[in-house]
Amino acid sequence: MRFTTLKTAGTVAALALTLAATVSFAKADTQLLNVSYDPTRELYKAINEAFAADWKTKTGEVVTINQSHGGSGKQARAVIDGLKADVVTLALAGDIDTIASKAKLLPQDWAKRLPNNSTPFSSTIVFLVKKGNPKGIKDWGDLATEGTQVITPNPKTSGGARWNFLGAWAWANKSFGGDEAKTKSYIAALYKNVPVLDTGARGSTTTFAQRGIGDVLISWESNAWLALDEFGADKFEIVYPSISINAETPVAVIDVNVKANNTEKQAKAYLDYLFTAPAQKIAAHLHYRPSDPAAADPADLAKLPKFDLVSIDKDFGGWSKAQQKFFAEGAIFDQLYKATN
């Protein structure tokens, strides 16, 4: 009796696994998986369609690009744990570096393989405030004023939040003439004004725009414009500070995975396509800063004003240094955030 039951159990389990396997392998012609960070959903939805059409006319092959979105750090972790990404398009180079160093899925010098440090488009960090700017927020300094509630996600989990932090740091560093103690006390005052640290940029935006918490959201420029589109320009407005950071969001092919999936050709073509005029135009239209502005619609470019932007490489010595100095366990962010709470 017990034997028979076991046998039945075995049969059912085998059937179940077969069914599961069938579902997971029921795929179209060629599929690519683009593992991306949180706010790029609309961007890649548009670009993927354009690329698929372009690839079809060029080669006759049907290619489908699947998307996975999440906090940049979390997504890098998933790729390390085995998420079969053909390409990654993350919020910062540091996260791709981690995939290269921890899981050896691509070479350390991946950034050199594509133009412009493998960055087809970038963004920057701006402020989103309520219509009419009732708190009169003009620049980074206003965020540290007592009684102003600031919404920004947690730099430990969100790539955007790390850019936010560095933007604030860059302003303070410039304003206080490089005085690190003053810079630190400014940052501490700013984070004292943060009532809740969400895990990702999208979470923060919903907290601010949907739940109406906080006076100002520190946000990706693209994300702020999208919020205006979604919630209406009569509810919010964007404030450009005097200085911010050039938030480079790089892309890379995951060599080991494309080899296993036999998608090397398509994955490379996909990333190359991001640098072409049609893709650049789409990106500019969705409020990303194109690496080739000539390809963009001037009306879209006009929305993205030129202002003083610092660089992660030139002003902070690259991501590995910045990570070490600011965001590692017990580094500056931890010290300042712990001191204020």
Binding site: L17, A20, A21, V23, S24, A78, I80, D81, G82, L83, K84, K102, A103, A260
Partner: peptide, 23 residues
């Protein structure tokens, strides 16, 4: 079953997907 997990390397060499897939 993750790529860095106990059975990760074995699963990868046998082309079995468990994590980040339906199973």
């Amino acid at each position: 079953f993750g790529a860095q997990g106990w059975f990760g390397p074995w699963l990868r060499s046998h082309h079995v997907e468990i994590i980040f897939a339906v199973p």
